[in-house]
Simulated scan of single mutants.
Amino acid sequence: MSTRWYPLYQKGNPQLRVFLPNFWMKLVKPKFSQPPNVVKFKVSMEMTKRDVRNYLEKIYKIPVVEVRTQIELGPTKREPLKGYIVKDEDVKVAYVVLVNYQLLHESFLPITNLLDNLSHYIVMSPVHIMPYYIY
């Protein structure tokens, strides 16, 4: 599962080693409107719900209420010249329910421009968690 090969640790080796996770997450704008405390991420296909929760809680210190994942099928289209069908890769999507959206805004400082574009998500006070469904 690992795509990185870390050098073996040798006693007395003074190099600082930073071990990064083999997973990636990308914050995206949802296709359909969601409650303000729900955020959509495109994630690595190998990630589970527990991995997504631990990634956000341990690395970014964002409290997570619930995580739901699903696999979105890649679009299929007919190649114009040859006529055969081409299918793009599938993508795993995670919908994360947060306690307070402002915590996400403060934690992801490098992507503030993206979050400013998602202005309909910004909530300045804690949001009451209500049941909802994704269609």
Rank of each mutant, 00 (worst) to 15 (best):
M1A: 10
W5C: 09
Y6Q: 05
Q10D: 07
G12F: 08
P14I: 05
Q15D: 07
R17Y: 11
V18F: 14
V18Q: 10
F19Q: 05
P21S: 12
P21K: 09
N22E: 10
F23E: 05
F23T: 12
F23I: 07
W24L: 01
W24I: 00
W24A: 04
K26Q: 10
V28I: 11
P30F: 01
K31E: 03
Q34C: 15
Q34D: 08
P36H: 11
P36R: 07
P36Y: 09
V39A: 07
V39K: 00
K40I: 08
F41K: 00
K42E: 13
M45E: 05
E46D: 10
M47S: 02
K49C: 08
D51K: 11
N54D: 12
N54L: 10
L56I: 01
E57C: 02
I59D: 11
I59K: 12
Y60S: 05
I62F: 02
I62W: 03
P63D: 04
V65N: 06
R68N: 03
R68M: 07
R68P: 00
T69R: 04
Q70P: 02
I71V: 15
L73G: 05
G74C: 03
P75T: 12
P75H: 14
T76F: 02
T76D: 07
K77T: 10
R78D: 04
E79T: 09
P80H: 06
P80K: 14
L81A: 09
K82C: 07
G83T: 01
Y84I: 07
V86R: 14
K87N: 09
D88Q: 12
D88N: 13
E89F: 12
D90S: 13
A94D: 02
A94W: 01
Y95F: 15
Y95L: 06
V97Q: 07
V99P: 00
V99F: 06
V99K: 14
Q102V: 01
Q102S: 03
L103V: 05
L103M: 07
H105C: 04
E106R: 05
S107M: 10
S107V: 00
S107F: 03
F108L: 13
T112Q: 15
L114C: 09
L115Y: 09
L115H: 06
D116C: 06
N117G: 12
N117A: 13
S119M: 10
S119H: 15
S119D: 11
I122C: 10
I122P: 00
I122F: 15
V123S: 13
V123E: 14
M124C: 12
P126M: 08
V127W: 10
H128L: 15
H128D: 15
I129K: 05
I129A: 03
M130C: 13
M130T: 13
M130Q: 15
Y133H: 08
I134W: 00
I134G: 02
Y135E: 14
